[in-house]
Amino acid sequence: MSTMLNVTGLSHRYGSGENAHVAVNDLTFVVETGELACIVGPSGCGKSTLLRCISGLIEPTGGEVTLHGDRVTGVPEDLAVVFQDYSRSLFPWLTVRQNVEFPLRWKRNLSRAERRERAEEALSWVNLPGVGGKYPWQLSGGMQQRVSIARALARRPALLLMDEPFASVDAQTRFELEDLLRSVQVAHGSTILLVTHDIDESVYLGDRVLVLSKSPARIVADLPVDLPPERDQITTRESKNFVSLRGEVARLLHGGGDAPEQAPTGEPADTTEPSTLA
C-alpha cells in the first residue's frame, strides 16, 4: 500500500500572545491509499481544525501535510470534503443534479453530457437515482447528506474528508448511511478520512481508528480495526472484537491518554470512570 496522506508535526494555534489558543498540537499520522481511517475525539478537541488544516482551508501554524507526496498549500485539486451541515453545504437554488454537477463545472475536457452522466452515476452510487430534478429541501435529511456525498464522489477525489457527516441525522438513518459509506468505499477503493465524536461509529466504520486527546488535540492511539471488511449493524456490533475495541477507545478517550497504548482486549470497559460517552 502506498501512502495517500502524510501529516507530520501538525500544529495549529488561533490568535497570538496571551489569548492564543492551541487547537491542535504536534499531530503525526499517515493514511494509506484505499483505507477508511476514523479520527475520534471528544467534542471541541480540535477535530474540525485538524480537518480544515488537511483540506487546506486554513494554513496550519506548524508542521506539514502532504497528499500523495505533494505538500498541501491551499486546497488540493483532488480532494473533497463532506460537511456535517448538509442543509447549508448543499446549494438550495440548485437542483440535486446541479448540486452534484457543481464541482464538475470547471473540470476541463468534460462535456455537458459527460458531466450530467457523471452526476447521475454518482447519485446511483449513493442509491439516489431519479431525484436529480428535485431541490435538496424536498428530500429528507439522510437523502440530502447522500447528495452531498455523491457531489464529493462525482469529483473522483484521491482523498475524501468527512467532518462528522452523520451527526445531524437520526439513528436509523445514520446506520443506513454508515453501511452505504462502507459499501461505496469498498466498491471504489476510496481513501476516506472521517472525523467523528461517536466511538461506536469510528470502530464500526474504520479500518483504523485514531484516538485524539482533549484540546489541544494529540494522538493518543492508532488502533487497527480487526473486523471483517463486510460489516453488519447487528452482528458486527455484537462481536467480541467490536465490543473490546470500543471499550478500548472509550477508555483511551476518557483517560485522556494516561491509559496504556496497548490496552487489554477482550473485556468490557469497567475499570475506568463511569461512561459519559461524548
Binding site: V75, V81, F83, S89, W106
Partner: peptide
Amino acid sequence: NATQRDTARSFRTPQRYWITL
C-alpha cells in the same frame, strides 16, 4: 453562509463560478 463558502473553497471554485453560481 460559512458552510457554503467552505464548500465552494473545498472544490476550488473559480471566481466566475463562485459569483454566478
